[in-house]
Design a protein around this nucleic acid. Structure first.
Length: 363
DNA sequence: TGTGTTCTAGATGTGCTAAG
DNA sequence: CTTAGCACATCTAGAACACA
């Protein structure tokens, strides 16, 4: 699995090197053990310069150079670093440390007589960014806003980019990225020559969104954690007054009547935060401790007015059964799944069955 | 004119390094 | 060991551009 990625990265780096230098490197081994140490690969240099063991590092910029150096020095054979991208500063340091390297955009340092290679300052380009694993903008923070919008209202994908941008509150430029990302990942089809975009694999797309949301988007929305004086504080709060929405367990309770909420989640426009916290008598939660009466507060990221009722975009299946002052079912579903709690999971299942499944059915 | 695509500047985020 | 500032990379909004 991981080995496969490593090999691909190595192949890509070799290709970049060959394109850059017109020299040839052969990959003579991939992912094996030598003296109980794993080696990601082995390459054969041109001009009988010999062989080098390969240590593959994805995301090298965020790794510790010293640690990498040690790892490579400790290899049972003379080794080199193969990375996605080596920036000029790192390149210089690696050269000083005497560590050979290759990256996937053509930078290289190899000092193994008779061979001497020193290529730096090659920049990763758009194509590379797009190629890179995880480079699917549909599942980045802003992409997730768009995907959420189209999940709530599948007909929206067929609308002009400008409309989609406006509805989901992102820039025009990002819509293209997301649409292409969805296409690439197989969630969006262009039928016919006329623009007629449709979502497919909607259930899978939902799952993908649910998985990515707490990772990429939710952290950016987080306004803080707070505590209330008593566990029933929320029953007296009218979220609508603040243009706010219950999420998580409280929302689940309202949708299903099944849960007794413990942890509260609320989505609140940032501008109303102070007012809400004051009125509800919430105070900042101490860093750790105390599961009781806690409230997670997030900013809103969707356009309730649009998601909720936009009949000008024809979609027969836009979700009808919204409760006011409560986050859309899909978001609540994601909140619940993210907790990993058994009862929450069950509530999530109920919400899915009642509010989401039919809505995502394809015809 | 309406639509999609590409480019760029600025904002944001992150690890690194130097200073305390 | 912790912190602050720095350098670099990434991300995104919005505009310019291109196309039909």
């Amino acid at each position: 699995m991981r080995a496969k990625q490593d090999i691909e990265l190595l192949q890509e780096a070799v290709k970049a090197f060959e394109a850059e230098t017109n020299l040839t490197i052969d990959i003579v081994g991939e992912g094996f053990f030598d003296n109980h140490r794993e080696i990601d690969g082995m390459i054969e240099l041109p001009y009988q310069a010999g062989r080098l063991g390969v240590e593959v590092k994805n995301w090298a910029q965020h790794a510790n150079i010293g640690a990498i150096a040690n790892q490579i020095k400790a290899m049972p054979v003379e080794g080199m670093l193969v990375a996605d991208y080596i920036n000029p500063a790192m390149a210089e340091r690696l050269r000083k440390l005497g560590i050979h390297f290759l990256d996937t955009v053509g930078n290289a340092y190899i000092n193994k007589p008779p061979l001497y290679i020193w290529v730096i300052n090659k920049k990763p380009n758009q194509a590379h960014k797009q190629l890179k694993e995880g480079g699917n903008r549909a599942f980045d923070a802003t992409g997730l806003k768009v995907v959420f919008g189209v999940l709530c209202n599948p007909g929206l994908v067929a609308a002009p980019y400008r409309k989609i941008a406006e509805q989901t509150d992102v820039a025009l430029g990002t819509v293209g990225w997301v649409v292409n990302g969805l296409k690439e990942a197989g969630y969006l089809l262009d039928r016919g020559k006329k623009k007629d975009r449709r979502l497919t694999e909607r259930q899978k797309l939902l799952e993908r969104w649910v998985e990515a949301y707490p990772e990429k988007l939710q952290p950016k929305l987080k306004l803080g954690e707070f505590v209330a004086d008593n566990p029933h504080w929320w029953e007296a709060v009218d979220t609508e007054k603040y243009d706010a929405f219950w999420g998580g367990e409280i929302a689940a309770a309202k949708y299903t009547g099944y849960l007794k909420p413990k942890m509260a989640t609320v989505y609140l426009p940032e501008a109303r935060r102070g007012q809400f916290l004051a009125d509800a008598r919430l105070r900042k939660a101490p860093d750790h401790v105390g599961a009781g009466n806690r409230v997670k507060v997030y900013g809103t990221f969707w356009r309730p007015d649009r998601v909720n009722a936009n009949r000008e975009i024809k979609d027969t299946k836009a979700i009808e059964k919204y409760l006011t002052g409560v986050a859309p079912p899909i978001l609540v579903y994601a909140d619940l799944i993210a907790t990993g709690d058994g009862r929450n999971r069950e509530a999530a299942r109920m919400i899915h069955e009642r509010y989401i499944a039919e809505h995502l059915r394809e015809d």
